[in-house]
């Protein structure tokens, strides 16, 4: 039955789109953790700030302007956060970091409310992405395809940078053993800083990309935080492979769970997470062996 096949294609695309969005968020978080051993619970809030900054810029110069401004603005915020807060918290235990960034969630949540109010904002999709495209026998929104393509492009780009370039080799060395990397003459501190800012920029990008799909609300950061954490814990902290695997697992379990067993859908993903933690406490693809 074609309609049956179409249904599966549609859900698979939906799952893929959710996965790509989560990938954009989790890759920044996971590499920051892997490299700096820093737990940034406020990563979701950066995503929300990205959505707001994107919406503000899009209101002036259209969607593409927003798409450009959001990552830059959030990276700028990353610079502030890094020099003001994170640099000093680097040597603290995970608990202090969790708490400081938990406090940061509160602060950023209320700051977005103060600047942009409580009412949801929206971003208009650009004209040629607002329609639907016929694909594999179904009609699928063009914008969602754009999200999938963007996610895949970023994944490919990061895989190339991390796997093939010198900077990538330095980052992998830092994740593996930062003291040894520093001994080899790598400026680990500057590397941390760069990676942190890139991670922030990707969170901002995810925010503005998600904005036309979901509405922009102050608590969108809190809502995305838990799925992102699940992704990186399932995938294993610190690795690109883990982030993409975790995102795909989450996206497909969540989407197909919601369609096939709505009662169990959300419990399913947590049960999966618990199972992963019991069987492989370090996740599926940890950066360190």
């Amino acid at each position: 039955m074609t309609s049956d096949l179409g249904f599966w294609t549609l859900q698979a695309l939906n799952a893929l789109q959710l996965s790509m969005l989560l990938f954009l968020l989790s890759i920044g978080l996971t590499v920051i953790f892997g490299l700096m051993h820093f737990v940034n619970l406020a990563h979701g809030s950066l995503y929300a700030v990205g959505a707001y900054a994107g919406a503000a810029a899009a209101a002036v110069g259209g969607f593409w302007m927003g798409l450009f401004v959001a990552p830059v603005a959030v990276a700028g915020m990353g610079v502030l956060l890094y020099s003001g807060l994170i640099k000093r918290m680097r040597r603290s235990g995970p608990m202090a970091q969790v708490l400081v960034t938990f406090g940061l969630i509160f602060v950023l949540l209320d700051l977005t409310r103060i600047f942009w109010g409580d009412l949801p904002l929206a971003i208009e999709k650009p004209g040629f992405l607002s329609g639907r495209v016929a694909l594999l026998g179904i009609e699928y929104p063009a914008y969602r395809l754009f999200v999938i393509a963007l996610g895949l492009a970023i994944f490919t780009g990061l895989a190339w940078v991390l796997g093939q370039t010198q900077v990538g080799a330095m980052i992998r060395a830092g994740v593996d053993n930062d003291a040894m990397a520093a001994c080899l003459g790598i400026n680990v501190e500057r590397l941390f800083f760069t990676v942190f800012c890139v991670g922030c920029a990707l969170a901002g990008l995810a925010g503005v990309v998600a904005a036309p799909l979901l509405s922009v609300t102050p608590d969108m950061g809190l809502q995305i935080l838990i799925p992102t954490l699940i992704v990186i814990v399932i995938g294993g902290l610190g690795s690109l492979k883990g982030a993409i695997a975790g995102s795909l697992i989450y996206g497909f379990v969540q989407t197909f769970g919601a369609v096939l067993a709505p009662q169990l859908a959300s419990v399913l993903i947590y049960a999966l997470l618990a199972a992963v933690l019991v069987i492989r406490p370090m996740g599926l693809f940890p950066a360190k062996g």
Binding site: V39, P94, A265, S266, V267, Y270, P281
Partner: peptide, 28 residues
């Protein structure tokens, strides 16, 4: 179940169980 996890993994594992209970109650 969580006794083997430490640090951030323990935090995440307990978070997962808590959210599991939340989702279950929310949807039942």
């Amino acid at each position: 179940v969580c006794a083997r996890s430490h640090g951030i993994y323990f935090i995440m594992a307990t978070l997962a169980f808590g959210q599991m209970a939340y989702s279950y109650v929310f949807q039942t």
